[in-house]
Amino acid sequence: DTINITLPDGKTLTLTVTPEFTVKELAEEIARRLGLSPEDIKDTHNGKTLDPSLTLAEYGITPGSTITLEIK
């Protein structure tokens, strides 16, 4: 299953994830792909900052969802 990550420059990154991924694991994968530190990444969905300890499923993030990435 894939989700879309909207980057600060407007580009989109597509990642393969499972509903059990935590937001922290997602940030780590994004950081790895972009050459950043996971601590520099802030993920938001529907205007809410995502708690790193919760899973994508707990936020109702499903395949095809879009998450907005902010760099701290």
Score class of each variant (00 low, 15 high):
27 A>F: 15
21 F>R: 05
1 D>E: 09
42 K>C: 12
57 A>G: 08
55 T>K: 06
48 K>G: 12
43 D>F: 15
11 K>R: 12
36 L>Y: 10
9 D>A: 04
64 G>N: 06
50 L>M: 08
42 K>H: 10
65 S>T: 11
15 L>H: 01
49 T>A: 09
60 G>M: 03
61 I>R: 00
9 D>F: 07
33 R>V: 12
16 T>A: 13
11 K>T: 14
11 K>S: 13
28 E>F: 07
46 N>R: 02
3 I>E: 00
49 T>L: 14
32 R>K: 12
30 I>H: 00
59 Y>S: 12
31 A>H: 05
8 P>K: 09
41 I>A: 02
69 L>G: 01
8 P>I: 08
45 H>G: 10
55 T>C: 03
2 T>N: 07
2 T>D: 05
36 L>F: 11
36 L>V: 14
58 E>N: 04
64 G>Y: 03
63 P>D: 11
59 Y>Q: 15
19 P>S: 06
48 K>I: 15
45 H>C: 14
33 R>C: 09
37 S>R: 13
23 V>M: 11
53 S>H: 11
41 I>L: 13
35 G>C: 08
12 T>C: 09
15 L>E: 00
1 D>V: 15
68 T>M: 13
63 P>F: 04
41 I>G: 02
25 E>M: 11
58 E>W: 05
48 K>Y: 10
31 A>I: 05
19 P>K: 10
39 E>A: 14
51 D>G: 02
58 E>F: 07
3 I>N: 00
1 D>Q: 11
62 T>V: 12
52 P>N: 09
29 E>P: 00
63 P>V: 07
3 I>C: 02
55 T>M: 04
61 I>H: 02
17 V>S: 02
51 D>K: 04
22 T>G: 03
48 K>S: 13
16 T>Y: 12
64 G>S: 03
40 D>W: 14
58 E>S: 08
64 G>M: 03
52 P>D: 12
53 S>E: 10
28 E>Y: 07
8 P>W: 10
19 P>N: 06
1 D>H: 12
66 T>L: 05
9 D>G: 13
32 R>D: 07
29 E>F: 11
56 L>R: 00
20 E>Q: 12
6 T>F: 12
26 L>S: 00
27 A>V: 15
34 L>T: 14
9 D>T: 06
17 V>M: 07
5 I>Y: 01
8 P>T: 11
55 T>N: 03
43 D>T: 15
6 T>S: 13
57 A>W: 10
39 E>C: 13
67 I>S: 01
26 L>A: 02
25 E>H: 08
68 T>A: 14
19 P>W: 05
61 I>P: 01
5 I>E: 00
72 K>T: 13
31 A>L: 06
35 G>R: 03
17 V>T: 05
29 E>T: 07
56 L>I: 09
32 R>N: 10
45 H>S: 13
13 L>R: 00
33 R>I: 13
15 L>N: 00
30 I>Q: 00
35 G>V: 02
51 D>S: 04
43 D>I: 15
28 E>I: 09
55 T>V: 03
